[in-house]
Amino acid sequence: MISRTAAARPAWMEKPKPLTLVAKGVALVVVLGIVIMPFVVVVATSLASNKEVVANGGWVLWPSEPTLRAYRQIFNGGIVTDALWVSIGITVVGTAASMLCTVLLAYALARPKVYGAKPVLLLVLFTFLFPPGMIPAYLLVKELGLLDAYGAVILPVLINVFNLVVMRGFFQGIPEELYEAARLDGASEWKILRVVVIPLSKAVLAVVGLFYAVSYWNAWFHASIYLEQDHWPLQQVLRTYVIGGAQLADSGAAEAGNVAAPQTIQMAVLVVATVPILLVYPFLQKYFTKGVLTGAIKS
């Protein structure tokens, strides 16, 4: 499928002109710089001392006396610490629930000629074309009595159709003979799923699981409309205090003289919200092109 596997230039290709090489090099450096630069500034500012931040007008490229004061302050109990735990809880519980429901439905829809599978699949795909809309979704959550319950930020987004289609496509690619062999051994559908299908699908399970985890971690809109302020996850707190410009009314911040500059705190919150994504990114990177592409081609 991939025509160019060797690192070398093919024999028919002429040597690139120096000017072309320079132009390409400049373009690459600019692209990389634009992507990486904001992260450098944010991390540097979060580590900088108050004096430096103030002297520099709010940002620092390289902290001369790095300090972890901002991080100590936000982890010292208070809004950000609480929000961090909420985010972790929503991400863990949400991902587990989503994976369970997605795997079960994808598996049942992947088996050939299952009774009722066709209408169910159509029902699922139609939601892709016609989402219910923000207001009806809100009223439904309200009628179900889920306002200010963590279920309100998990249940309405329990299954992502794209993830479901990717997983179903992968399950369908498992050779039919394996199913037949397992059935001849007397295994039930449930056992086939556990013993045959899941061990063969580690790659797609990893991709879909990470996609779910990233989306739960990044979510803030549902939290902003369904949850009270003291139940907010980190992204919604970040939104209010960094984009909205509100002050962090931390109890820890009251100790006079030992308070980090507001910019430093904001940037530290930004770093804390980003780091989990950076941590799982290498794993995503390892699997996603494969998983995403098989799914994209299928649909």
């Binding site: 049942a108 939601t127 809309g133 207001i135 439904l140």
Partner: peptide, 25 residues
């Protein structure tokens, strides 16, 4: 297919309640 249909239930319930239920709204 009763076992497979049982496996379908949570996901199907999700779509019926949170998509078609909301759609009715």
């Amino acid at each position: 297919d009763r076992v497979l249909l049982l496996l379908m239930l949570p996901g199907l319930g999700y779509f019926l309640v949170f998509h078609y239920g909301a759609l009715l709204g």
